[in-house]
Write a protein that binds this DNA or RNA. Structure first.
Lengths: 251, 251
DNA sequence: CCAAAAGTGTTATGTCTACACCCATGA
DNA sequence: TCATGGGTGTAGACATAACACTTTTGG
């Protein structure tokens, strides 16, 4: 921060008594599961630059608030949801020219939400929409600024978070079946998991999920009704499910 | 970033046509092993505020450079070392009032270095010093600004990095013994590791360390000479050593 | 020869994976 | 009763931890 270099000479072309002003923004990548795929909440820009393009929602930090506070406020303004507990700062971006108008440093946050209907309702519905992440990563949808990079980093981060924290339960409803929870891992990691072993790993981790005693109704195809669980207290100290190492990576 | 909120009303007291200016700085936490303990490179501040206190080295980002570039430049200016490959951005800090003079958002980086002598030489030696991390975390040494919090986060981050990346070899010299490498893990995690199993885990991971064929001279107390290794290519995809789960944490 | 540190072998225990098998439902 | 998905059992492969034992040095 404001500590200046201890080398006696200021670098050429730089006056240490001044500091260059920047705009500081927060961008919030909101991820959610919809129809078995990972989706991201995007807004359509209403003005130049990049008018009409999709972008990650965000806005300016105010001097009187913290970065976390700014992210929480922006998320609330955009979606009407208080998701402070699942907001995770994951990276800052400050490449010159990333905003053509001015020098902007942005701090990117990640939020995982369920209850899709309530999210979109709280926002300006015409300008906000859930978009499949794969459509963006495939290049079928272009994003403004360097938002493609930010989204890529966010998705990579959520893949890691899924393994080291219990964030998976943030994707599902307040009660859920093992199959629903498993689908989160399968969609985000792009793998197939053995249902039997998945269940055992989840249940073995103490306090992770709590059986409600109730059961879900089977789908129209039949099948045994699944037990319903709710999320336990404990998604801080490392999750129970780990990505399998692909055979060629093993020694 | 510059995407503005899509809610029609700007929040009260905030004019969306203006953006509040911030100073943006980078702070670089330089960690190194010295005498079996984790040390951090600190500078003594020469001016108010916090004059005379220890602080993490850092400085202003310039408009024409990237955040990574600013961190690399500051590190070079302070220490004379080009450590770009081991520079890791780990978090941004922007609480209001964290600098009493102005609104400053700082992006913190972590660098792990060996070769302590060369580091201090490149800098203003009178104002820079390696301090044991434990002295700072114990409160025996106060840091300026919110640098204690930044250092705490950096140490927590390095503990995780040690497990998921191969950064341990960045702490030791270009050739090293198993005991030296093991000492890195033991110092940073504060645990004792079984030397036999440690060696096996390291050697089993393909490409991690490469035997040089040479041996280190034993210390004055004797003992069999240790094989010397050099770091392999492969510290990207997860390290071979994992923290033991403490007994109370097991299910 | 003894102490110390490096390195190897061995065994018990735990975890992960694959897959066979039983259970409860809709049509 | 059959197809479908949920849930349990189990055996082999693999990983981890504890510790005895051998090797090679300095004193």
């Amino acid at each position: 921060m404001a500590t200046r270099t201890t080398s006696g000479q200021p670098p050429p072309g730089y006056d240490p008594s001044q500091f260059p002003p920047f705009a500081v923004t927060v961008d919030v990548v909101i991820l959610t599961m919809s129809e078995g795929a990972l989706n991201v909440l995007l807004v359509r820009r209403g003005e130049a630059p990049f008018e009409g393009m999709w972008a990650i929602p965000g806005g300016f930090k105010r001097p009187a608030e913290t970065l976390d506070g700014a992210a929480k406020r922006e998320l609330a303004e955009e979606t009407g949801v208080d998701a402070a507990p699942v907001l995770k700062q994951f990276r800052a971006y400050g490449d010159p020219g990333r905003d053509p108008r001015m020098d902007v440093v942005t701090v990117a946050y990640l939020a995982v939400l369920r209850d899709v209907g309530a999210i979109v309702a709280g926002s300006d519905a015409a300008a906000a929409s859930l978009i499949p992440v794969s459509d963006v990563l495939n290049g079928q949808i272009d994003l403004a600024f360097d938002h493609l990079r930010i989204l890529r980093d966010a998705v990579e981060r959520i893949r890691v978070e899924l393994e080291v924290s219990g964030i998976a339960t943030a994707f599902v409803g307040s009660t859920f079946t093992m199959a629903e929870l498993r689908a989160v891992y399968e969609a985000i990691w792009g793998v197939q998991l053995d249902a039997a072993n998945f269940r055992r790993s989840i249940v073995a981790e103490d306090g992770w999920v709590i059986p409600t005693g109730r059961r879900a109704r089977p789908g129209s195809a039949g099948g045994r009704p699944a037990e319903l669980y709710r999320a336990g207290r404990a998604w801080k100290e490392g999750g129970p499910i780990h990505r399998a190492v692909r055979p060629e990576e093993r020694k």
